[in-house]
């Protein structure tokens, strides 16, 4: 595998924390969607985020790479630190945040261009001044597609439109195209919910493969998936964090009544 597309080194800090929020509140206009969220998400592991629909999982995820901001009416208080840097500080460059913190959406959203151009899109954006040779680009392309276990499938059709791929392959491609930009954190918002069971299994397997190289925060409302495919788990309810612990512990001996109710399927 080409090392060009390998993940950037996970920065070191004492606590081994990738994302830390402090008293994070978020409002859509006058509607408060997040309440005093205090979380410390460990680097290099997979953390899953569960909770009933509308509890603020996507909202939280989307504030970690500041993609919420394009809505003019979103207001935030508190801090979100990514590797000890408050990403809402004045001197923080949004583009750099987005490069560090990649995001995968519920519905695969490949751009309506070729597979090759999808993968190299981010890379080309950020390397304008350095002219990359064809062979370097090929290496990045192969590296990224290898990492998402898609290379063998698409290596002979790199110039075909990405939208012609199956949904599962599209979602893998959407993960792959983040990698050449060398993110450290990957946010995934229900990445399997548009996929059939086979596709879900394949993408889950891939996410598990990426563990260690990236800090992964994955939203899911599939409890089995959270249990299978994450090391720590966060349970949210109505904009608040109810519980954050090792996945096994959260499912076997939940500390809170509400968590127990939810994982037993009493609501959501």
């Amino acid at each position: 595998m080409g090392n060009t597309a390998a993940s950037a080194e996970q920065p070191d800090n004492q606590a081994g924390i990738a994302i830390q929020t402090d008293q994070l509140n978020l409002w859509y206009g006058t509607f408060q969607a997040l309440f005093d969220v205090n979380l410390a998400i460990r680097k290099g592991i997979i953390t899953s985020l569960i909770g009933p629909s509308g509890c603020g999982k996507s909202t939280f995820l989307r504030s970690v790479n500041r993609i919420n901001e394009r809505l003019g009416y979103v207001r935030i208080s508190g801090t979100i630190e990514v590797f000890d840097q408050n990403i809402y500080d004045q001197d923080v460059e949004l583009i750099q945040v987005r490069k560090q913190v990649g995001m995968v959406f519920q519905r695969p959203n490949p751009l309506p261009v070729s597979i090759r151009d999808n993968i190299l899109f981010g890379h080309r954006l950020h390397n304008k001044d350095r002219r990359y040779s064809r062979s370097e680009e090929e290496e990045i392309l192969e590296g990224a597609l290898q990492q998402v276990l898609l290379w063998d499938k698409v290596k002979d059709m790199l110039d075909r439109k990405a939208t012609e791929l199956s949904l599962e392959e599209q979602q893998k491609l959407c993960i792959a195209r983040l990698l050449p930009v060398k993110p450290t954190v990957l946010l995934m918002d229900e990445p399997c919910s548009a996929l059939d069971p086979k596709g879900t299994a394949a993408v889950e397997e891939l996410i598990w493969e990426l563990r260690g190289k990236y800090t992964i925060l994955i939203v899911t409302h599939n409890m089995a998936q959270a249990r299978r495919a994450s090391e720590e788990c966060i349970f949210m309810l109505m904009g608040k964090v109810v519980e954050h612990s090792l996945t096994e512990q959260l499912f076997v001996t939940p500390a809170s009544r509400e968590t127990a109710n939810y994982i037993e399927g009493r609501y959501g």
């Binding site: 993609i67 583009i95 987005r98 990649g102 959203n109 981010g122 954006l125 950020h126 195209r177």
Partner: peptide, 26 residues
């Protein structure tokens, strides 16, 4: 689709880069 823009922004594209490379052509 807004998803195209978000795809671009998530790879660190500026608004204008997203407009020029994806929105306008479509």
């Amino acid at each position: 689709p807004p998803a195209f823009r978000e795809a671009c922004w998530n790879m660190g594209a500026t608004r204008w880069q997203a407009i020029r490379k994806v929105v306008l052509p479509n």
